[in-house]
Amino acid sequence: MRDYLFSGLVIFIAVVLYLFFQNVSFWFPFLLNVFSIVVIYFAVEKGEVFGAFTGMACGLIQDSFCLGVFGVAGIAKTLLGYFTGLISKKINIIPFSRNVLFNIIMLIFELLVWVFIYTLIIGEKLYTANGLLFLQPFCTALVASFTIVLVRKVRERKSKYIR
């Protein structure tokens, strides 16, 4: 229960951050997807099922901020959460560089799934915000890896302090 409440709180913070970045610049959300960071974090920390649920929640929230079909980002992020959780258990992604590379691959996978469903269902020309959309996996992966490392460091310090 505590985990679900915590994830709800983190998703709410992600929504506020997303809206704040949008106010800073129109282009910011195209470069950095805060919802994907949340999905990756929970998938790595809590496993594939938790990742899939978080992905669905984050994706549907992201879809509610767009005009048009509801569920496109939802499916892409559900798959991102599930496969990130599943693969991260089987390979070592603790070193920073490996973590960044792994996140980049997973986010490119998410972008491809999203583009595929978008073109299939909506059938419109994809808006790339002057190409910024293609940089999104790289920027998001970097910030996600920094976040994971930072959270681990804080947790280590906390456990040392308790001991």
Partner: peptide, 20 residues
């Protein structure tokens, strides 16, 4: 079990899309 959960979540969203 995990794969079934994933497929159910995807299916729910497919239904959401088709409802629209």
């Amino acid at each position: 079990k995990n794969l079934t959960i994933l497929l159910s979540l995807v299916l729910i969203q497919m239904i959401l899309i088709s409802i629209q």
